[in-house]
Structure formats: structure tokens, C-alpha cells
Simulated scan of single mutants.
Amino acid sequence: MTKPHRTIWQRWNWLLWVVVIGALYYWTINGLKFTGLQESAGAVSRSIVDGLVHPQWSYVYDGSGEDLVSLILQTLAIAFLGTIVSAVISVPFAFWAARGTHERFFLRSGSGKVVLTLIRTFPEIVLAIMFIKAVGPGSYAGVLAVSIHSIGMLGKLFSEAIENMDRGSEEAITSAGGRSGQVFALATVPTIMPEFFSYTLYRFEIAVRSASILGMVGAGGIGTPMIFAIQTRNWPKVGIILLGIVIMVLLIDSLSEQLRKRLI
């Protein structure tokens, strides 16, 4: 069996991609201006490593409410509440942005997708700074930032789940004479809810990481003492905070993975 004839472009188009990618690498690397290392870089690096290797264990818990355990729990509360609020609000946005099987010009779904894209445009840290100006520093601003940004992300994921869902159960109930409300309650909701829960858990994992950073701008959580410790070069305190964040993230990721396996 003879091989199909390939044109010159089909045989050598990979070379064009190599040139384009090489040019992009050259442009990006050439745009970086390396100014060298400061004279104190070695001493500072040794201090950072020493602090990370010998963390401040006394900061783990002291009952003041400003210790590591208390602020880790506050960070988890910010992420959890922000995710729950966004998951509930994202549902109507998802049905708005989901493309229907009988939609001809996609005006409804297209406008919904644009709104969700606009919501996702603002990074969480920018939203946190804006809400701090509106409601003051603290956990409330962090919850608002996480929840608003998560609406854009979960709304997009939920809408894609609705678009790609199996329509077999809907068609079966419709053919049996079921009404639209019965189709929605008995077929649509049971089909999409496992994916909705799975995406919500995945978003909670991301929200935990985000909530750890939002405190650096005053939005509550473990980020606030971490930025203060970095500014004062209290590296043992930075070390124990980073250790706490790593353990928190690993536990949340492991628990979330187990829950997602049970749902799907």
C-alpha cells in the first residue's frame, strides 16, 4: 500500500513552528535585564535557609488568636465560605451561559459567557484590594474577593458541564410525557450535580491557596503575619508559617481527591 503524497508544506511546516517558538524564546529572554546579585545576597540567603530549617515552633499555638493554628483555621474559613457562596450564585450564571440544544443564534449563552469572562478578568488580589477600600481590612474582604472571582470560574465550569451532559434521561422522561419541570428535577439535576460538586471541591482547593496570599494585602488569614515576618526578616516565623501552609494544602488536596472519587 503506497503512502499518501505529502506536499512540501506538510513535510516542513514543523520547521516554521521551530523558528516561531525560537524567536519567542529569544524575544522574552532578551527582554530580561539581569542586574547581578547584591553583595548581601549570600548572607541573606543563609539567614532565610537557617530560618526555614529552624522554624519558630512556639508560634504554632499560644492561645492569642493570632497564632498559626488560629490563622490557618481563619484561612480555611475564608476559602470555604467564599467557595460555598460562589457555588450557589454560579448556578443561575451557568444556565445563562450554557448553550442550549435548540438555541439558534447563541445570543443568550453568548452574553452569559461574556459576563463570566468579565468577572474572571479581575485577579483575586485586585478584588481584595478593592473590597478592603470598601469594607475595610479583614476576613470579610477576603471572602468577598474569593467568592466574586470564583463565580467567574465556577460559572464557566458549570456551564460546560451543562452543555456536555448526557441528554438520554431527559429524552426518556420527555417521551414518556413528562413536563419541563419534571425533566429538570428528575433528569437534569441528578445528571449534573456530581460534576457541580466535583468542580466546587476543585475550586475550594484553589481558594485555599488564594486565601493564604490575600492576607498579604490585609484581607485576613495567614498571609498577614507572613508578610510582616518577611518585612522584618523574621525567617524562623516565615519557616513555620510556610510549613503550616504546606501541611494545610496537602491535607485539603488529599481529602478533596478522595471526595471527588466518590462523587464521580
Score class of each variant (00 low, 15 high):
Arg11Leu: 12
Glu171Cys: 07
Trp57Cys: 05
Lys133Asn: 06
Met153Thr: 14
Lys113Ala: 06
Ser180Met: 09
Leu118Tyr: 03
Leu127Asn: 03
Gly155His: 08
Ile247Gly: 00
Leu32Met: 15
Gly100Ala: 13
Ile213Lys: 04
Pro4Leu: 06
Lys33Ser: 14
Arg262Gln: 11
Trp27His: 13
Glu170Phe: 05
Leu127Ala: 08
Trp14Gln: 09
Gly215Asn: 03
Arg6Met: 13
Leu250Val: 15
Ala185Ile: 14
Gln74Trp: 10
Leu32Ile: 15
Pro137Lys: 12
Trp17Ala: 12
Gly142Pro: 00
Gly152Trp: 00
Ile240Lys: 01
Glu170Trp: 04
Val20Lys: 06
Trp9Met: 13
Ala187Glu: 00
Ala229Pro: 07
Gly36Tyr: 08
His5Asp: 05
Tyr202Thr: 11
Gln182Pro: 05
Thr188Phe: 04
Leu32Val: 13
Tyr25His: 11
Val91Lys: 02
Val20Arg: 02
His102Gln: 09
Gly221His: 07
Ser150Leu: 02
Leu214Thr: 10
Thr35Asn: 10
Val20His: 03
Trp27Gln: 14
His149Phe: 13
Asn234Thr: 15
Ser111Val: 15
Val246Cys: 03
Thr224Asn: 04
Leu250His: 04
Asn13Leu: 07
Gly239Asp: 01
Ser70Lys: 07
Ala41His: 10
Glu205Gln: 13
Leu154Met: 11
Ile151Cys: 00
Phe106Val: 15
Lys133Arg: 12
Ser86Leu: 00
Thr188Asp: 01
Gly168Glu: 01
Gly112Arg: 05
Phe184Cys: 07
Ser169Ile: 10
Trp12Gln: 13
Thr117Asp: 03
Ile264Tyr: 05
Val238Leu: 01
Gly31Trp: 00
Ser198Lys: 14
Gly136Lys: 01
Phe93Tyr: 08
Ala87Asp: 03
Thr200Ser: 09
Thr75Trp: 00
Phe228Thr: 14
Leu259Lys: 03
Asn164Lys: 11
Val85Ala: 09
Gly136Cys: 08
Ile213Thr: 06
Arg167Ile: 04
Leu116Tyr: 04
Val249Arg: 07
Lys237Trp: 02
Gly138Glu: 05
Val49Ser: 04
Ile125Thr: 07
Thr121Trp: 10
Phe106Lys: 08
Val49Arg: 00
Pro225Ala: 09
Ile192Trp: 01
Gln258Arg: 06
Val146Phe: 03
Leu52Gln: 01
Ser159Phe: 07
Leu37Lys: 08
Arg233Ala: 09
Gly221Cys: 02
Gly138Phe: 11
Val246Trp: 11
Ser150Arg: 00
Arg46Ser: 13
Gly152Gln: 01
Arg167Asn: 07
Ala94Asn: 03
Pro55Trp: 01
Leu73Gln: 04
Gly218Glu: 00
Ile162Arg: 04
His54Val: 10
Phe204Met: 08
Ile78Asn: 09
Val88Ser: 10
Val208Phe: 00
Arg6Thr: 11
Leu116Trp: 10
Asp166Cys: 10
Trp96Ile: 15
Phe184Asp: 08
Gly110Trp: 11
Phe196Pro: 07
Ile245Asn: 04
Ala128Gln: 11
Ser175Met: 12
Val19Ile: 15
Gly31Gln: 10
His5Gly: 02
Met226Trp: 02
Ile84Pro: 01
Ile252Phe: 01
Ser47Gln: 13
Trp96Ser: 12
Ala161Asp: 06
Tyr140Asn: 06
